[in-house]
Design a protein around this nucleic acid. Sequence first.
DNA 1: TTAGTGACGTCCC
DNA 2: AGGGACGCCACTA
Length: 108
Amino acid sequence: MTSNSTASIQHEIYQVVALIPRGKVATYGQIAALAGFPRHARLVGYALNRQLAPDSELPWHRVINAQGRLSLHKLDMNAENLQRFKLEQEGIQFVNDRIDLKQYRWQP
DNA sequence: TTAGTGACGTCCC
DNA sequence: AGGGACGCCACTA
């Protein structure tokens, strides 16, 4: 690992993401704040990138950006298609490639 | 060490 | 509405 502090941060991020219920979504910034690291939205992306595996227990697909859009295409367009598929399977509706956060945002 | 980068967010126009 | 300019901060070369 590059540093043990980031390892613990990642651990906190995973714990929060694991709490997102089926059929709901959260933003990167929301996850960072809930994990106790405000303004670290980008770190959430880095952390999830390491968990990007088909057999991952983590509901990484329920994390989207503050615009209600998917951001994964910059890295892996194929993975983004999977993310959208998983979300739609949970009953989340896309309107013009966008999710209505007022309706679907997770509120702990 | 420094500079560039990025699964982001907010502000401004 | 939607796009651009910054701000942010860990990571990488």
